[in-house]
Amino acid sequence: MRRQLAHASMSALAIAMVAATAACGGDESDDGGVDTVSVGVIPIVDVAPVYLGIEQGFFEARDIEVELTEAQGGAAIVPGVAAQEFDFGFSNITSLLLAQSSGLPVEIVANGVASTGVEGEDFGAVMVPADSPIQTAADLATATVAVNTLNNIGDTTIRESVRLDGGDPSDIGFTEVAFPDMPAQLSAGNVDAAWAVEPFKSMIEAEGGRPVAWNYVDAAPDLTVAAYFTTSQLSQEDPDLVERFSEAIAESLQYATDNPDAVRDILGTYTDINPDIRAALTLPAFPAEVNRDSVERLAELGEADGIFENPPDVDALLP
């Protein structure tokens, strides 16, 4: 018995230590004037500009070599950047506000992706099955809605959609389901609605699903959804590198805006999305600048829903 107790305590500690991310050193090897940077991204539509930028040599032209690391989601990227495992990362605005309000010293360096701002034609929406009795956002008030992360951009913006449509969002049953599992869970009827972004939105549509709320559009005009960020430490230590990186990203974003077919093509190189869906899906907008008003709006929505322990400092977060 004593053996078992000691064993269990040790296991608990071991689990605890493994659970926290290991702090590795960052890697910025200076290779004859070229900076190698590691960037944590999620292999989704949103980061196509970075891949395009690498392909077109926008980073190389500024003496930057980019090492992309694909992560499962923002939850892995933010700790990675904080631990200096990545130099830069890609994450949604609400996650960054959360990190900042919890004391993590993160700073946005460049815009990532934005809503198209056009209702009926955005890259994310709340979807329901074809035969669902839910017709508008207000109908979601008593539904179970799947979102990929709780207390994040999904549920806070969906509550706003419901409010704007005259409904009461306080009783919505949000459930965490990973994006890839949403089509199956929706058709199985385990959730009444699912907030899906591309390509999963198109997959649900292919099965007959329809959108009932455009939460990115409802939250704020031209909503900035996600951005590239780094730690304050890096931006203080090497402001030149950060500036070059942001410029390269800005150029990539512009290129993506001007060449939507190139975006669809490059998607095929880093995702498994099949060609038909790739051709049909709605692309997000890639503006070169972060929309500051929309970031403040997201902070307001988050505070209204009580997801922040301390109020976030939007100015500290924005470049």
Binding site: Q4, L5, A8, S9, S11, I15
Partner: peptide
């Protein structure tokens, strides 16, 4: 995590 560890230990003791 601490609570989880204690829970595991308690269950092991009961067992």
């Amino acid at each position: 995590i601490l609570l989880l560890g204690c829970l595991g230990a308690a269950l092991a003791a009961v067992f």
